[in-house]
């Protein structure tokens, strides 16, 4: 499902972070957001899946739409959070077994059938590229996994809620190169099945995985376009400066 952000401004306790952002994230592609620290990338992701409103003093104006649905129209934010999954920078394993981490969403959404739950766990772990490593220890506490494995578990857990969009906030920033490579391969695999929005500080990573690149600065979209266009022929001076390491 395509995702639209229209004239969206947001901030916390009167401090404006996003300033009339207008964007279109392409359906079933990897949309990468880059920009200097503090430019509002994380706030944008949290606004899209409505976790920003869990923080004190959050306010916004404008519109975010998932297909035809206004993300902020429903009183209950959990409906949209299920459709738009978010994977955080710090790999978090819930204090449950590996299997129960994956099934955390499906159990809540009403799946009770044991064989079906087992299939869901296997399928999601396979999609997240973790199945081969954990298939013999599904009942072990998830905290026993390495950082890279925990991050793939987080992706499997998000996939189990069957989202239409997957947001990832610097998912590789605390991982080693091997784990980073695995996650990048996984994202390329998943693109085509769901819309992915990836925030990264790593321009090399953006170049490796992006279909579309969005450059954000001071809470505003400076420029966006296809990877080739953005890396080879950026139009704006700020974009050129950022991509050449001057910003």
């Amino acid at each position: 499902m395509a995702l639209y952000v229209k004239n969206f401004s947001a901030g916390f306790a009167g401090h404006q972070i996003l300033k009339t952002v207008t964007l279109r994230f392409k359906k079933n592609q990897i949309n990468v957001i880059v920009g200097p620290s503090g430019c509002g990338k994380t706030t944008l992701l949290k606004s899209i899946n409505r976790t920003a409103e869990m923080e004190k003093g959050f306010s916004f104006s404008g519109e975010i739409r998932l297909g035809k649905e206004n993300v902020y129209a429903n009183q209950d934010p959990s409906v949209i959070r299920r459709k738009i999954g978010l994977v955080f920078q710090t790999p978090v394993a819930l204090p449950l077994s590996i299997k129960e981490n994956v099934l955390f969403g499906p159990r809540y959404f009403g799946c009770r059938d044991k064989p079906k739950l087992a299939t869901v766990a296997e399928h999601c772990l396979q999609r997240a590229g973790l199945w081969a490593e954990v298939k013999d220890k599904l009942d072990l506490p998830a905290r026993t996994l390495s950082g890279g494995q925990k991050q793939r578990l987080a992706i499997a857990r998000a996939l189990a809620a069957e989202p239409e969009v997957l947001l990832l906030d610097e998912p590789c920033s605390s991982l080693d190169p091997a784990s980073t490579k695995l996650i990048e391969a996984l994202l390329l695999d998943l693109a085509g099945q769901l819309t992915i929005v990836l925030v990264t500080h790593n321009l090399f990573q953006a170049n490796r995985v992006a279909h579309e690149v969005i450059f954000l600065m001071d809470g505003q979209v400076i420029e966006s376009g296809s990877r080739d266009q953005m890396f080879s022929h950026p139009e704006q001076a700020e974009t050129k400066a950022f991509f050449s390491g001057l910003l």
């Binding site: 959070r81 204090p95 969403g105 809540y108």
Partner: peptide, 21 residues
């Protein structure tokens, strides 16, 4: 606190998160 953020970002209710985690 990341358990709360992670759990709720999956679209589950606060009550479910409270009881299970």
């Amino acid at each position: 606190p990341l358990y709360r953020l992670t759990g709720l970002s999956l679209g589950v209710s606060r009550r479910y998160l409270l009881v299970r985690v």
